[in-house]
Simulated scan of single mutants.
Amino acid sequence: MTESTTTTPARAGGKVNAGGKAGKAGKTAGRAGRTGTRQAAWLLAAVVVLALLTVASLAVGARGLSLGTVWQALTQFDPTNGDHAVVQARIPRTVLGLLAGGALGLAGAAMQGVARNLLADPGILGVNAGAALAVVTGIYVFGVSSLTGYIWFAFIGAAAAAVVVYLVASLGREGATPVKLALAGAALSAGLYSLMNVILVSSQDTLDRFRFWQAGGISGRDWSVVLPGLPFLAAGAVIVLSTGRILNGLALGDDIARGLGQRVGLARGVTALGVVLLCGSATALAGPIGFVGLVIPHAVRSLTGPDYRWILPFSLVLAPALLLAADIIGRVVLLPGEVPAGIMTALVGAPVFVWLIRRGKGAGL
């Protein structure tokens, strides 16, 4: 009778332990839920900022327009109205800013995850330089003058540069460490841009066709420039956005990633394919715009932490916001002329790059 009604200390302790574990699990789940809700709210705020900058891109310029005029031009277009014509001309430019900015932001975030280096960026690791040299070669040797030709040469150059940087960084006992990747990319960029300049100074015709594109920007583009790049941008975005868990594993190191069941070589290859598609397309469409892929993923981490499942969508939204903001400022800062968006992003990105180096956070993630 006594045994049936008395709870033993072992059983009581087991119940207490079980209850404690359940309580901890509940608290962890609650914190995760609150974190996800907060990040979702920040992402929604970023989308709102991007929407406002999109509207501003249609309204602001050498010829400023009211929001009412912009709305009328979008909903009740009158071809005889000069203001409406200005809005229609700015639409492809704005769409290109959204596409190129999103591509560079995603590519930069993915490259930082693969290289485990906060200094990784399509410009710094030589990918943009490879694409630019390939386009110049296409113009000089093959007489390429269409965007379709630019895209294919940009893809080849971006892929070749990425492979060379990785192979050079892999030499030695430690393999492709984050620091070696950054150094190899910087050295390759300097060499490729030197070769590009050799071609440009030897051919005035090539220089005339290339110099407008070289500055990097989204002005002067129309739908004939934007539309051919859409399939490549879409494919690259789908690939990179699906690699959030992969990048989280790679950020822990190759050994831990393998222990978690990842095939590290395949993971890097898939991610690199997405990066090449994004960088090649963006560079062909808008020229070699630098620092967007560096600044945005770094800034995003202050909101999301190290989780790439959040870093990637935030970069997709905030990178085009930065590019559009740079383009808008460039339109009005030196009226009646314009400053290309690529120059404006460099003015923002270069100090951030120096700050990252001085903080000593470039060694790895």
Rank of each mutant, 00 (worst) to 15 (best):
E3A: 15
T6Y: 08
T6I: 13
T7M: 15
P9C: 12
A10K: 14
A12Q: 14
V16G: 13
A18P: 10
G20M: 15
K21T: 14
G23C: 12
A25C: 10
R34K: 14
R34C: 04
Q39E: 11
A41V: 12
L43D: 09
A46S: 09
L50P: 03
L53V: 04
F77S: 10
P79T: 04
H84I: 10
P92G: 00
L96T: 14
G97A: 07
G102C: 00
A109Y: 07
A109H: 03
A110T: 11
Q112G: 03
V114S: 01
V114R: 07
L119N: 10
G126W: 08
V127G: 02
A129D: 04
T137Y: 09
T137P: 03
G138E: 01
L147A: 12
I151E: 05
F155Q: 06
A161W: 11
V163I: 11
V165P: 00
V165Q: 07
V179L: 13
L181R: 11
A186F: 10
L188V: 00
N197E: 13
N197L: 13
I199H: 12
L207I: 10
L207W: 14
P228L: 04
P228M: 01
G229W: 01
G236P: 08
L247D: 06
L247E: 06
L247K: 05
G249R: 06
A251M: 11
L252H: 00
D254G: 07
I256E: 11
Q262P: 10
R268M: 01
V270E: 09
L273I: 11
L273H: 05
G274E: 05
V275H: 00
S281M: 00
V292K: 06
G293N: 04
L294R: 02
V295S: 02
I296D: 06
L303F: 08
G305R: 04
I311L: 12
P320K: 08
P320W: 03
A326E: 04
D327F: 03
D327R: 08
I328M: 02
R331A: 04
P336L: 06
E338W: 10
I343E: 09
L347K: 11
V348T: 11
G349D: 08
P351V: 01
P351K: 00
F353Q: 05
R359F: 05
G362D: 06
G364V: 06
L365K: 13
